[in-house]
Nucleic acid binder design. Structure first.
Length: 542
RNA sequence: GCCCCCAUCGUCUAGCGGCCUAGGACGCCGGGUUCUCAUCCCGGUAACAGGGGUUCGAGUCCCCUUGGGGGUACCA
């Protein structure tokens, strides 16, 4: 029986790197008919944010990654929040202490820092000196009374090499002395990650640990701990890392960075109103631009929205808000460091599960290519069922607060149908926003008006279109098409010369779904009203 | 500094000693379809990081160099 787990620390939204790790573990469990566990690693009080767990859970749900054990669903090996498992960790810490396999330390962070600095100045690696005699309980009491911090360190056996058998990388050997003693219990009484992960993976029965390459160096420590506690060693798979276009690990810092660069590239940014939009002070803005501090994500998002700039998506929720489908994300993320071994690329969850295995994971890092992601999204928009697409679209509209969110399903279905070929849901929303604004509130694009209405007798043609529409008995996309094509033929001009003025009149821009559908969806009354308004508004200016 | 991992088109990758004059996809460039945008169709461009071995034969195995990434926390 295969048991895998995803163990995020709740520090904020789930980012794509974490989503990929979750996905690989989930795919493997599903492929093998095993169990997938969600465990929250909240052992660092300083880093945890209260809502982060909910955000991570939401993001996983959106992706369609479900868990058999974990928060909200329970399970036989709970609790699934490490902060609620303190007594369990304490038992094992005591055991190691009693067996002389771990020892108390009283160093202050400052002392350790000084030792490290000294080592690096001498171009030496820092090695913690294990005392010849381990402190006893009296020493602990004395240290406590002196106000010194008390931590517990694991004494890593130094006589044997430790071999990590990684399914992706093969055997990786760490010589004796290369793995040094490390803290397993912090001075606040919480276990460190290294300890909690080992205990929980044992107790929860994890058979396979699929995680990022950044954990490879931690693995010998974990194995030493497993040996000392008499635990199994799970199968390890250290995946390649996903890097961003700007080089380096795909990081949450990219969004603030992109925004900062954008602001700095503006010749006269209105910093005051921008700070206001972000809900931060002008001092904070100053500090942000000088790379001293970074406002929180909502502030960054708000400022980006205020400027109308598109920040690179990093968190799963960013992709949702940009109009990507969960199917796209799952497919694309799965192909970052894995492939099915044939030429298939566009796949749904079931196909991925059926094809997934651990032997086809690649060793080298991969770059997150947004262009390819977009092409995958185009494919999935065409591939998912109309009902599923409608569901995704409604969720998207609600998330971004679009006025279209209130539209009936039938109307939205029509919109999706005529927008097939769109690359993102955002594109569809923007392209059909004109359907949801008041006739008098159409936002006319200056260059579009200039280019289409003022040239080639655009307004004149528009007036004729209006006249013919008024005379139209039956109103369907087909009859509208007949009118427009007939008019173009009659005037010996291209259809574009007829369609574009009409498009600008009803949409305000030169971009919309096919004009016949656009008119039909808007309704003839509204169309005639907008034609009249456009002519009144622009005729005298020509 | 030390330790570890990695290395095929711009990008994701196929390739597990001869099937490779290196395949696919995205991008890009050119052409076509079209009422706009997008889609769609056709064509093209483009890679085995460098140097040594091993072998009858190396993209595929070994070593070195270079480059990239990661680790070196009372973060996970």
């Amino acid at each position: 029986m295969v048991v895998t787990r995803f163990a995020p620390s709740p520090t904020g939204y789930l980012h794509v790197g974490g989503a990929r790790t979750a996905l690989f573990n989930w795919l493997y469990a599903r492929r093998m008919g095993g169990t997938f566990i969600l465990r929250i690693e909240d052992t660092d009080l300083k880093r945890n944010t209260p809502t982060a767990m909910q955000q991570v859970i939401q993001d996983l749900r959106w992706l369609g990654i479900d868990w058999d054990e974990g928060p909200e669903v329970g399970g036989p090996n709970g609790p699934y929040l490490q902060s609620r498992r303190r007594d369990i960790y304490d038992q094992y810490i005591t055991k190691l202490l009693d067996q002389g396999k771990a020892y108390y330390c009283f160093d202050t962070p400052e002392e350790l820092e000084a030792l490290r600095r000294e080592a690096s100045e001498g171009k030496q690696g820092f090695v913690y000196q294990r005392p010849d005699q381990f402190p006893d309980t009296r020493d602990v009491e004395r240290a406590r009374s002196e106000g010194r911090p008390v931590t517990v360190r694991f004494a890593v056996p130094q006589d044997q090499p430790i071999i990590v058998q990684d399914v992706i990388r093969g055997d990786v050997t760490f010589g004796p002395g290369e793995v040094q003693d490390f803290i397993i219990q912090k001075s606040d009484g919480f276990p460190t990650y290294h300890f909690a992960v080992v205990v929980d993976d044992e107790l929860m029965g994890a058979t396979h640990v699929i995680r990022g390459q950044e954990h490879l160096m931690n693995t010998p420590s974990h194995q030493a701990l497993q040996a000392a506690l008499g635990f199994r060693t799970p199968v390890y798979a250290h995946m390649s890392v996903t890097v961003s276009e700007s080089g380096g690990k795909l990081s949450k810092r990219e969004r603030p960075k992109a925004l900062r660069e954008r602001i700095k590239s503006m010749n006269d940014p209105d910093l005051e109103s921008l700070a206001l939009a972000g809900g931060i002070s002008t001092e904070e803005m100053e500090s942000f631009l000088n790379k001293k501090t970074t406002p929180d994500m909502p502030a960054i998002d708000a400022m980006a929205a205020h400027l109308g700039v598109h920040l690179p998506e990093i968190n799963v929720v960013d992709f949702f808000r940009s109009g990507y489908l969960p199917e796209t994300m799952v497919n694309f993320l799965a192909l970052l460091g894995w492939n099915p071994g044939d030429d298939r690329e566009v796949m749904d969850r079931e196909e991925l599960i059926a094809a997934f295995n651990l032997d086809r994971l690649s060793k080298s890092n991969s770059l997150f290519d947004r262009k390819k992601l977009m092409s995958f999204n185009t494919e999935h928009i065409k591939r998912v069922s109309p009902a599923a697409l409608l569901g995704h679209y409604k969720a998207f509209l609600a998330e971004i607060g679009s006025p279209a969110a209130r539209a009936e399903d039938e109307r939205l279905t029509r919109i999706l149908k005529v927008c097939l070929g769109a690359r993102t849901l955002e594109e569809i929303e923007q392209k059909t926003r004109f359907l949801f604004v008041d006739n008098t509130k159409v936002d006319y694009d200056e260059t579009a008006v200039e280019k289409v209405l003022f040239k080639h007798n655009g307004l004149g043609v528009l007036a004729e279109v209006g006249d013919q529409f008024k005379a139209l008995a039956e109103i369907t996309a087909e009859s509208i098409e007949q009118v427009l094509r007939g008019l173009a033929d009659q005037k010996q001009i291209g259809l574009g010369k007829v369609a574009q003025p009409l498009r600008v009149a009803i949409c305000g821009t030169t971009i919309s779904p096919p004009i016949f559908d656009s008119v039909d969806m808007l309704g003839m009354d509204n169309t005639l009203a907008r034609i009249r308004i456009a002519i009144e508004k622009f005729d005298n200016k020509n």
